[in-house]
Design a protein around this nucleic acid. Sequence first.
RNA 1: GCCCCGGUAGCUCAACUGGAUAGAGCGUGUGGCUUCGAACCACAAGGCUAGGAGUUCGAGUCUUCUCCGGGGCACCA
Length: 514
Amino acid sequence: MLDFIREAVNGALNLLGAEMTGDFDVMTAPDFTNCDYATNAAVKMAVKNKKKAADDLAGALEKSGLFEDVKVIMPFVNMKLAMGSLVKMLNDGDRPFPAKKEKLLIEFVSANPTGPLHIGHLRGAVMGDALARIFSFTGYEVITHYYVNDRGRQVRLLGESILAAKAGQPQPEGGYSGDCVNGIAKDISSGDSVEKISDMAVERILAGIKTTLVRLGIVFDIFYSEKKLYDEGHVSRTLEKLKDKKAVFEKDGAVWLDVSDRDDKDRVLYKTDGEPTYFLSDIAYHDEKFNEADICINIWGADHHGYVGRLKSAVELLGRNADKLEIILYQLVRLKRGDQLLKMSKRDGTFLLADDVIDEVGPDAVRFFLVSRKGDAQMDFDLDLAKEQSSKNPVYYLQYAHARICSIFEKAGEMGIQASPCGGMIGEEARDIIKKICEFTDKAALASQERAPHHITGYLMELCGLFHGYYDRNKVLDGSDPLLSSQRLFLAGRVRETVKKGLGLLGITAPERM
RNA sequence: GCCCCGGUAGCUCAACUGGAUAGAGCGUGUGGCUUCGAACCACAAGGCUAGGAGUUCGAGUCUUCUCCGGGGCACCA
């Protein structure tokens, strides 16, 4: 829609032979103007008399025949679309997004395979998946990654914890406990090596994580193994590249990387005990990612914020453009039950499992809640509200609109009415809703550009709100007026299609009945 | 101490990157099913956008200071 307005304004400017001092904006017009869109193009024209420029522009826009009203309220030129323009857009359907040249790799969740997913992982999972869907819809070629830290100290500790549990001995320092560890301990033979048990445990826990993700409708293209980075020599190759840049040095018995340009201080690659840090393999991993894609996007919890600078610095040392590594941080979610804030601690085992939350609230509601706020706002997730008042949950408002329209189509079938593109029969009462439908691709583009899925939820609330109101005031199927009925049915069909597409971008189902 | 993110209606959050008279959901109050699905609709109440100063035609949005909340400052991930 905004493209359409922009083209119209451009056309008018060309007609006037206008010279511009800068780009102009197109925006929605406020209610009191009784118009749809506005532009500040007049004040961006290279003339002294802005008022005259605005009047000239308004005149040229009027001549286009696309608008039923154009009025100047300085500094804006406001436009009201002609019903014919709107109906044509509605009938034509959304323009598909052209394929983008850049290939995009998005990595998210990447929780350590040392235990099941818990509430803390959920927001990143849901945001990442929604973004992947939005990117794909808006023309990017997209690959999704889950990076698996399947080696190193934590994994070894997991194996040792399981062995200890098996032998009935106390946990090693900082070790793991809980149902997960005990469950695996039951199924091993005590003679196995730590390595073997660790590998087995990782495999099993990862399988559980995948199951949880599938419940949410999340399926990754690739689970990328850290171990593989070592086995295939990527880590050592990356290290050589860094050494070539003279960025690697030894100090106090450890090996360091100079990342001081973007971080507070230099960071360690090999510890004094000779073990590599996770930082080293992370760098190798990102080098590999950039071999596959033009833009790499990571979804991280805000608690990893301190890690951003050093990784960007390292990526730059490898000759990559650090701006093409986009790290999207999401703030942490606090869980509430009514007024009660839930204290969660990994150590006490009091954190809530992702599966429990999904059981309690349902996958669609979980996804809707966690994706309906922008990532850099921290949020409180009230389980009581999401669960007990689930019938008033906004997600049902959207799904209900979809189901309702499905039901209308069923009824239409019984009545022998078929949808047909709208003509003059559709009146003013459908104006707002047609306009809203035609704004869908604007919102998808916005969500894609800003890497912010919450624009879609807000849009869908507006669209469905308009439809529910329209439905209440206008009978779609009227046996005495088949022509009007078929056109209103077409309109309803476009609403249904748009709601389904929008929910699809968020990974939320669009049920036909509920 | 330094860095990052927040502070908007009673609560949870929006506001199309600087646009005009700041919007939804929940909660509260009133009204609406003989009619395509009432998980819905209509109307109402609710605001000095934490506070001060600045930038310009114009600020919730940009700069700066103060206050409050969250997170981070490892040879842990």
